[in-house]
């Protein structure tokens, strides 16, 4: 039988383990937080891990022949196959351990896929994997809010109004992308009764991120973590501001950091402060105006986004997570 790994909580950046499992060798853009995310995930998981990486920037711009950055075993998986890849490895290890074909020991099985791979194309396989309680695995969605590797196209995680190569700014249609971002982590948490752990994090809060990865890996069964990873190229900002961009995403309420373990939901900083009413959400325009992809928005567009956000935080049954609540009079 496979066993999950036990981890110590990381208390502060300086207390993070020194060994790097994801090192030099990649050729992602300067300021790429998706690459930084790989580093955090691998660092938190440690050497007894296997990583399955879906097609996307974290494959194409990341693992060139003869210069892999991965110090732990890593394998490419197809764009829509993150869920199947982790399930395949997890079941393989489990059966081999049961039959005495390999040593019985805890091994972390981690899938890392982009928003396009996980929330669009691979949704069905990810969802299926989250229904198998007997196979321990973690699926990490690095959300850079576009199909970045193919030249930045709209995905279901691209924010409303963003300019991408599939949604250019036109003279007749100034906004071509008018869909609201899919709430992927919440969907995973709400729809998979046997998935004990779902969290969302952001690279701007690395200690929180690493602890969520560790928590996910120490819990039995399939787990899921969505991680917002600012992308200087796709979002069109100076690479030096990646960290700041992540902070602003969370502070404006465009992203929320939360954790659901065995049905219990908690919020982490800075989301926790917002939820408790201790800090005000920063105006969303202050965040959006820092990115070229929103350059074309007019005042009424910012107002629309702000209004939508206010609703999500003010009216949703579970703020920032689930829109519905039980209608009045329905419960005894």
């Amino acid at each position: 039988m496979t066993m999950t790994m036990e981890f110590e909580r990381i208390r502060g950046v300086k207390a993070a383990p020194l060994p790097e499992m994801y090192t030099s060798g990649h050729r992602t853009c300067q300021g790429c937080d998706s690459a930084l995310n790989c580093r955090y995930v691998a660092k938190a998981a440690g050497p007894r891990s296997i990583v399955l990486g879906a097609t996307g920037c974290m494959y194409v711009a990341n693992t060139s022949y003869y210069s892999t950055p991965w110090a732990i075993p890593w394998m490419h998986t197809q764009l829509g196959a993150t869920g199947s890849a982790v399930l395949g490895v997890a079941v393989s290890l489990k059966v081999q351990m049961r039959k005495g074909k390999i040593k019985n020991e805890p091994i972390n099985v981690i899938g890392i896929g982009g928003d396009g791979g996980v929330a669009d194309m691979g949704l069905s396989a990810v969802s299926a994997t989250l229904t198998w309680p007997e196979y321990d695995s973690l699926i990490v969605m690095y959300d850079n809010e576009s199909y970045a590797n193919t030249g930045v196209q709209v995905s279901c995680q691209t924010p409303y109004g963003a300019h991408t190569t599939f949604s250019p700014v036109g003279t007749v249609k100034p906004i071509m992308h008018k869909r609201w971002k899919k709430n992927t982590a919440a969907m995973m948490a709400a729809g998979h009764p046997e998935c004990r752990y779902v969290a969302s994090a952001c690279t701007a809060y690395p200690v929180d991120l690493m602890n969520k990865v560790r928590r996910a890996l120490s819990i039995s069964g399939p787990t899921f973590v969505a991680i917002l990873c600012p992308c200087p190229k796709g979002w069109d900002f100076d690479p030096r501001y990646s960290h700041e961009m992540g902070e602003m995403a969370c502070k404006s309420g465009m992203w929320a950091n939360w954790e659901m373990e065995d049905g219990k939901l908690t919020f982490q900083t800075p989301t926790s402060g917002i939820i408790k009413g201790m800090v005000q959400r920063m105006p969303v325009a202050d965040y959006l105006l820092r990115q070229g992809r929103f350059d074309h928005l007019r005042k009424e567009d910012f107002d629309h986004i702000q209004k939508q956000l206010d609703k999500i935080w003010g009216e949703w049954g579970i703020p920032a997570i689930l829109p519905f609540k039980v209608a009045e009079g329905e419960l005894a």
Binding site: T77, Q78, G80, L87, V89, V95, K101
Partner: peptide, 18 residues
């Protein structure tokens, strides 16, 4: 949950020794 997954699952299981 589909044939794409069927073949991806065994592919990865086989690489890891099964």
């Amino acid at each position: 949950e589909g044939e794409h997954s069927q073949f991806e699952i065994v592919k990865h299981a086989c690489v890891s020794g099964a």
